[in-house]
Nucleic acid binder design. Structure first.
Lengths: 194, 194, 194, 194
DNA sequence: CATGAATGAGCCTTCATTCAT
DNA sequence: AATGAATGAAGGCTCATTCAT
């Protein structure tokens, strides 16, 4: 039973984030103007600036919130032995994280050119690198490395691309994960074979 | 034996296309202004409008030129039996096409949000769909379909992402292709197993 | 024996005035935003509006406080005989007043365009006029009038400009005053010569 | 008989400069918006940006044009012996330059706070310093230095302030110059006396 | 084949100010 | 005595596009 105050307190702030992310994901970052965001919320542009310093700041705040699970995942994984089982658990958890913040990740993937010179670009790149380092060793055979990276990226691609394929969403997600798990397993056997 | 006129005529046109594609790929479509393109070529913005009707038209013309190999590939494949061998040859040729027009495909991948409501968006989507239909059957098990799509998209991703992995470019390209070929092979055996 | 309340009450008010004057003098009136003033004081903009009706009102209140000595000087001088000795004493006292409220006068001089359509513009102009009438007669020869005005303005200019000249601050101030005193003396002899 | 082309060619550019300087001088730099300038010229804001890169650029271009005589004066004077006669000639010419670009100098004086962090601020400061070095020696007695600087600044002040004094404009200008000339003469005799 | 000049729409951002609490 | 939230107006600037020459 939250007090009305507390509830309303950051209400607008959250609504801005929600609408912004929705529009950013739907239309792209540059094509979404602050005017549009403001209008959807029935506030003025200036109101946005009360809550956020800049347009980019809105995005940063969204990312900071939604990226947290990824960070936790990375931290957790770094404390685990680098076994196949760990790697597969990383993928499973990453899959959850991805689907849990689908809009943000869709945005990140579809706006790479834009994101590249925004602050969150570097921040995202860093996480991807950390993840890929958890899945593969720098001295592994090339093919193994590529299988691992493919496992990672197939999940990114899978989120939006597979919409053309018919089937239940949950089922598809499961299948995507299964393929990814298979890929790291193969990568692992590349290692022993080499 | 082209007339000097003809030669010079397409010269500027081509230079515009080259510079535009370079900038589109480097900075993104929206962040590249016609002013910038014109300045690099030491002509005025108005000159661009002599050669192209709109900004988008520049992109369309580039795409029309560079997409031709893909169309040929699709046409060729549609006349072949849908065997594993054909599918793998599709991937091999697609790999060539991708690396042959790397800037364009990099652009397409990094500007999806933008491209989506440009004419070339639909045009590209159509080709991807045609390709994926060549690689997989709609009634195939989900996992097989996903493996095929992953084969396709891993090559897209591979173009830029693998730059962080050390190794000779040609070698990496070979490895990426090998993994993709392997994926369709697995997809094929999913079929027989089902 | 001020009550604690009273003491604290004017505390914030004064701090606002201090910070505002400092920033106005440093950066100019328009380039100093209320946000900036508020931030320096670790209060909100709205707090400023508790103490002052408008931005201009802050300036007016500052000016009202710091201009008092000038008013006293004028009142005093108007009761004196219009001798050279009086005029020189006016300059001496004006010099004190100027240095005593250096920030304000620096602000007034460096923001003339702005000040012109603020209330204090007129108020300042009135005082300058009063002062100049104390130093010179309307029917005096042109040169005499100019010497008197120059005496006045040289002190304004002197405050900031002479910082490039090396030397002890007090010494410079003395020299500036000396030159000014000399100028009115010359103005006076212009009179008798005419 | 200029060709219509040549005449019209930079017509707009010049008209922008004229209107801008007029408004800058009348209202101040910050209080003059590009919208206002554009409206007076019956063009759009964007047209201004065709001719000038930024608002500040308009000012810079104006200053570059109107400051030329000052630069010439400085160059000339630096090639002359540093006699009293030279110094007085400097003042005479400076007086001409000042009245010839009265709007610009009025602007500079009334917008010092603003000008300070504009490019032309430094540029103006440099010239003033050059001029003052022509009029006075760094090792001269303080009073002499102040008299020289006062000579210089009295002319600045004189341009606008003396409007309150009645009398023919030309006559007033002559008187102001006379007082200034007198001041450097006195500065010079301070030297020999010391 | 290309330019010079201009436009209209729109963008992000900042500001002084208000008002209920 | 002060704040949190919001507003309306405006500002400088950039962009794709047009058109007469």
């Amino acid at each position: 039973m939250a007090t009305p105050h507390q509830t309303r307190r950051s209400d607008t702030r959250h609504r801005i984030q929600d609408v912004a992310l929705k529009l950013f994901a739907e239309q792209g970052y540059e094509k979404t103007s602050l005017r549009e965001i403001a209008e959807r919320l029935h506030v003025t542009k200036a109101a946005l600036y009360y809550h956020f310093k800049t347009k980019e700041d809105i995005l940063i705040s969204i990312s900071a919130d939604l990226m947290a699970p990824i960070d936790e995942l990375i931290t957790w994984a770094q404390g685990q032995p680098r076994t196949l089982e760990t790697k597969q658990e990383v993928l499973r958890r990453y899959c959850d994280a991805l689907w849990g913040a689908a809009d943000l990740f869709r945005f990140l993937q579809e706006n790479q050119a834009t994101v590249r010179d925004l602050a969150i670009g570097e921040s995202f790149k860093t996480r991807i690198k950390a993840l890929s380092e958890l899945l593969t060793e720098p001295d592994a055979p090339l093919t193994a490395q590529i299988r691992s990276m493919t496992a990672l990226f197939s999940m990114h691609a899978g989120m939006h691309v597979m919409q053309s394929v018919e089937g239940d969403a949950e089922e598809k997600r499961g299948a995507i994960l299964a393929v990814a798990l298979d890929l790291v397993a193969q990568a692992e056997s590349d290692l022993t074979r080499a």
